[in-house]
Write a protein that binds this DNA or RNA. Structure first.
Lengths: 150, 150
DNA sequence: TCTTGACCTCAACCAAGCTTGAGGTTTTAT
DNA sequence: ATAAAACCTCAAGCTTGGTTGAGGTCAAGA
């Protein structure tokens, strides 16, 4: 077992973080984490890695992709314990992102309420059909579904 | 061009719905839609397909996977125009699903608010670390990140 | 009739986020 | 010293939701 203050093996990190060894390798390949190596080429992590991994997982659970998480982690240098202030700042950003998602969903829900009575889902008129004009942008030839026909 | 009341080709459906032909083929392969065939083996869709596709896309945009959409479409038989009542019922279900997601996110946001001051992210104590006990369930050996060490 | 555009199938490829397996090496406990 | 457990790399496979391309056929206007 590791002594207090010593480096952690990948297996220990996996066990403590609940993240599979293969996922840790994957995160390393993606540049999210890194580790020192022994002369025999095995990974050795400083304990800070656990907090870093915790942050990665929380952000991922919040719906951020790994690619999005990389810049989020920028303010937290590797090999250093992130300060409470660092974490505070990041978490504030996350809060904003979540709030935005809530707002989007609430807007959708309200539109849905307006639709419940109509049953229309018309291509150009139903607000549901164009949650954020995405389809309108790529559907170059969208045509009104005329009520008499459908 | 198609006469009123006639069947639609896959190209026409694509143009009117804003969904790529390849995606229509894909949906068919997944069992979400179907089409009659000409003697020459080309697809011919009834106009009802447009509403069905509209429903599929809305549900997908709401975050449902295609696999989840299949049962949602069950009450809407193919080859028949879904009634306003059918749509109304489905949409009510969607509303519920959205509301649930909003509630989950709001809960997360509130926990985040509780965390902003602490900067902890402790594995077992920080509420953020266990948004819905998912990690607790699969992280069999998770160990408390002791404050003095990290 | 003929030509052209639209259609057909099937297979391969993409991104994300991993897991699994093969084949081989290092570390650690006894 | 040795044997087992843990580690290493690299490649392939999985799922979702499609797109792209090859090679060939169909349908409709001139």
């Amino acid at each position: 077992m590791a002594q207090p203050g010593s480096l952690l093996t990948v297996g220990e990190v996996s066990e403590r973080s609940g993240v599979a060894v293969s996922a840790l390798h994957f995160y390393e390949a993606k540049g999210l984490i890194s580790a020192a190596r022994t002369r025999g080429n095995q990974r050795r992590y400083s304990r800070d890695i656990l907090r870093r991994i915790a942050i990665i997982r929380v952000a991922r659970d919040l719906g951020f992709s790994l690619a999005e998480i990389t810049p989020l982690l920028k303010p937290i240098p590797e090999g250093q314990s992130p300060s409470a202030a660092d974490v505070k700042e990041m978490v504030a950003d996350w809060r904003e992102a979540i709030q935005k998602r809530i707002d989007d969903l609430a807007e959708l829900r309200d539109k849905l309420d307006g639709c419940i009575g109509c049953g229309c889902l018309s291509l150009t008129e139903c607000p549901l059909r164009n949650p954020s004009d995405e389809l309108a942008a790529d559907g170059t030839g969208a045509v009104l579904l005329r009520q008499g026909e459908a």
